[in-house]
């Protein structure tokens, strides 16, 4: 297929976007900049999903992570006291422990990835025209129990958040409202 070179170029562009975002998150001194840089990572990963013809996953990635998680993180960061002082709001553990943590995490990820897929596995040459209805059908037939269990979990989280927030409001310790209800 002639489009393969375009796909390769797109892949590297999107990967560069995701990695640049991740590096900015890790190395930025301002925690607000870190939070905003997450946007690049989320969008880059969504683009990679789209490149793999996983259209629904890509859209849901943008919707949940950019539209929900990132906004909540931004609200939390912006409400942080003394956010401009990097030492207070963005403390570091030093170079050696950081390097060790990074190596451990990278090793774990590489081992998992190689175990799951092997070095070069082509999952499927023929992409389905749409992944929406297969995913929907699977969620409501084969995986209906995990799906429902997750919704119960979310309900519990919601109730917990309300309990914590209302308890604090009754005591008057934090009179202001806590951003948005979890979605």
């Amino acid at each position: 297929m002639n489009g393969s070179i375009v796909q390769v170029v797109l892949f590297y562009l999107l990967a560069a976007l995701a990695l640049t975002g991740a590096c900015l998150v890790a190395f930025s001194r301002s925690i607000v900049h870190s939070a905003f840089a997450l946007l690049g990572t989320f969008v880059g990963v969504a683009g990679l999903y789209a490149l793999l013809a996983a259209d629904l996953v890509a859209i849901v990635q943008v919707m949940v992570y950019v539209g929900g998680v990132l906004i909540l993180i931004l609200f939390a960061v912006m409400l942080t006291a003394r956010v401009d002082e990097g030492k207070e709001s963005n403390p570091t553990v030093g170079k050696i422990p950081g390097l060790l943590a990074m190596l451990a995490m990278a090793g774990l990820l590489v081992v998992t990835a190689v175990k799951a897929f092997g070095p070069r596995t082509v999952i499927s040459e023929a992409n389905p025209p749409s992944t929406v209805s297969p995913i929907g059908n699977l969620l409501l037939s084969k995986y209906v129990l995990p799906f429902e269990a997750i919704s119960v979990l979310l309900l519990a989280v919601l109730l917990g958040a309300v309990t914590i927030a209302s308890g604090r409001m009754r005591k008057g310790a934090g009179g202001k409202q806590e951003g948005e209800a979890p979605r």
């Binding site: 946007l39 919707m63 950019v66 992944t131």
Partner: peptide, 24 residues
């Protein structure tokens, strides 16, 4: 797109980040 309507909802969430960015 097969996910057209969801796509509109998703892509407009970039606006929210942009507005927060402008504000900050």
């Amino acid at each position: 797109l097969n996910v057209g309507l969801l796509y509109i909802l998703a892509v407009t969430s970039l606006v929210v980040v942009g507005l927060l960015m402008a504000g900050w």
